[in-house]
Computed example of a mutant assay.
Amino acid sequence: MAAQTKSIGVQPELLRWARDSANMTIVDVAEKFKKRPEEIEAWENGEGGPTYAQLERLAYEIYKRPLAIFFLPSPPDEPKPRTEFRSLPDADLSSLQRHTVLLIRKGHAFQAALEELYQGRNPTERPLWRETSLSTQRAVSPQAQRVRDLLGVSLEQVEEASTDDEALKLWRRAIEARGVFVFKDSFKQGEISGFCLRHEEFPIILINNSTTKTRQTFSLLHELAHLLFNRSGISRFDDAGIDELPPQDRAIEKFCNSVAAEILVPARDFAIAVRGLDPLHASDEEFAAVARRYHVSRSVILRRFLDQGQVSEAFYLEKDREWANQRGRGGSGGDYYNTQGAYLSERFLRDVVSGYSRRVISKSEAAEMIGVKPKNFDAFQDLVLRGAA
């Protein structure tokens, strides 16, 4: 009977805030909750309210919030996507799906866990963003070379990678070694390629695992470029909407694309690799052969021709759309714990496990940091001990 007791002390404003912050309409909530929209609207207007059991469902299943947050006197102050991200036009920001909004919130939770784990200070002696930054007022090539030098990834190392996945891991580990924590997840909103969240000590990148490894690599470097502009960013797979951005934001977004392409495919080496190749008449296999050299997509190779003025933007967009229709999904597959371990920042997971092993943090604290139930933490500990994460 206690489950039927009305919730006490829940402000209607908090119910509205929780729904708005998940980018959901009253109809969306009603459908998930198997209720009439009028009933959800009445709760938000202070006419009655959910039972305690219903509030638990709202908190844990629909809004993905701690239950305690609904008993605050007023909504907490949180960054909103519209103010946090300037790399998408307003139309795209307003259409962010609930799952994407929840992933952004998950990213902030990871940052809070990082602050707790490392006691407020990045464990890297020389974080990348304190060694260099980007500016649209300087040439792309030397800035990209500076980033590549600081990451310590050579063309030879990339070329020697046996698979696209190995090349992605090479870049990911190099970036984490310079203080940026990299996470992955499967995005339900397929057109989003990833996002980054700036932070003075703990910037993070979260990339969409539901696509090819080469696409993930470009997204990783694109989001890194955002961070080196000292801004959060959320990016699409295509260039749609860039021209709708304000001039300064549009310039930065295009610059991030160029920097990522130059880091992955340096112009000097590219000129040698494509000598004698006519991009307007080259076959898909010829583009693919060059792409394999750098473990990038054909679109990145075509973008290099675009950057050098050898193809028009219309030609690039047409081929990119054609190739996009041919791309497979990255997928995860395999063992659940291996997959989830790969989603987490390798350095973060390793240090959480180390903290638990040294009894610096408890199992429940360690599990909360990586976002799993305490009973499942041992499986992630085994991953680290086996070196599989």
Rank of each mutant, 00 (worst) to 15 (best):
E131A: 12
A261V: 07
I69L: 15
Q111R: 09
N122Q: 02
R16E: 10
E322D: 15
G330N: 02
G331A: 00
L168I: 07
R198F: 11
G107Y: 02
I234T: 02
A267Q: 15
N23M: 10
P246R: 06
H222E: 05
S232F: 02
A273L: 13
S354W: 15
P246N: 04
T339N: 12
S141W: 10
L14Y: 00
A174D: 05
I242M: 11
L58F: 15
V140R: 06
A112I: 10
H295V: 07
L151I: 07
K6E: 13
T132R: 08
R172A: 07
I242T: 08
S186E: 15
S362E: 09
R321A: 12
F70N: 03
A314G: 06
A167P: 02
Q326C: 07
D249Q: 14
K80E: 14
C196K: 03
D239V: 14
L245Q: 03
Q143T: 08
A342D: 14
K213M: 11
L197N: 00
E125M: 12
F195A: 03
Q11I: 09
D239A: 14
N325W: 11
D28G: 03
K6F: 13
F287K: 01
A271L: 11
P266Q: 05
W171D: 01
F187L: 00
L103R: 08
K184T: 11
G309W: 03
I361R: 05
D351A: 06
P203F: 01
A367T: 04
P12K: 00
V384K: 03
S297A: 08
P50D: 07
G46E: 01
L280D: 06
R298V: 04
A30P: 02
L245I: 04
F348D: 00
G330M: 00
F255G: 00
I207W: 00
L206W: 07
V10L: 02
E322N: 08
T214P: 08
H295F: 06
L277R: 05
P12I: 03
I205L: 06
L134T: 02
A261P: 02
E201Y: 04
E223T: 02
P81Q: 04
T132S: 10
F85I: 05
S362T: 13
K169W: 11
Q137K: 13
V300F: 01
P73S: 00
S133I: 09
S354M: 11
P66R: 01
R275C: 09
R146E: 13
N45H: 13
V300D: 01
E365Y: 08
R359K: 15
Y336S: 10
D278H: 06
F237W: 15
M24L: 15
A22G: 09
R130S: 09
T25W: 02
R16G: 07
G48P: 03
H108V: 08
G328L: 12
V274A: 01
A366V: 05
V29T: 01
F181E: 06
K32M: 15
R275N: 11
E244G: 10
E78P: 05
S7F: 09
A68H: 10
T212M: 13
H281W: 12
D90E: 15
G241E: 01
G120I: 07
G276F: 11
A379Y: 09
I69H: 10
K6H: 11
R138N: 14
E262D: 08
I62H: 08
T339W: 10
K363P: 09
A22Q: 09
Y343Q: 13
